[in-house]
């Protein structure tokens, strides 16, 4: 959001989450919300990451542990399925990987700059010891 002059914003430094009126936000998913430019949803902290989580849906059982324990609302779950990661909001903490119960894990951390396909190509095999 561009830095505005003193005469260009709402008095009282009040921020509004949405551009338009919302009816029942608790049942409106992100893609259907009229986010305002002041909503941090529209911002990115992607550049905080040193490592990124990569999702391998071949092993995912949709347990949703990653969804509930993600501190940054960055696990995208729709219709009870894990469908991906929101890399604008993921800070790369690695909690999702730690709580992933599958073997091999369905989420692993990789260097931020490593190519996604390369990450998936080198996915580890099932670890017998981990069981």
């Amino acid at each position: 959001m561009a830095n505005k002059g003193w005469d260009e914003f709402d008095a009282g430094a009040i921020l509004f989450s949405f551009n338009d009126k919302v009816d029942n936000i608790a049942t409106t998913l992100a893609e259907d919300r009229p986010y305002s430019p002041s909503n941090s949803f529209t911002a990115s902290v992607g550049d905080w990451r040193i490592e990124k989580p990569i999702f391998n849906k071949d092993y995912c059982i949709d347990c949703q542990f990653c969804w509930i324990y993600c501190p940054d609302v960055s696990i995208i779950a729709r219709d009870k399925k894990m469908i991906g990661i929101d890399f604008d909001h993921c800070k790369g903490c690695g909690i999702c990987v730690e709580v992933c119960p599958t073997n091999p894990k369905s989420l692993l951390m990789f260097d931020e700059h490593k190519d996604d396909d390369e990450c998936l190509a080198g996915w580890p095999e099932k670890d017998e010891k981990e069981k």
């Binding site: 830095n3 003193w6 914003f9 919302v22 936000i25």
Partner: peptide, 25 residues
């Protein structure tokens, strides 16, 4: 509830002066 508002934000050196200036104006 149709227009959620955030009150009492933090403004640091990049915004605080403008808000105080607005109030004074």
């Amino acid at each position: 509830f149709e227009k959620p508002a955030t009150y009492g934000v933090q403004t640091e050196e990049d915004w605080h002066f403008e808000h105080k200036a607005r109030q004074h104006n």
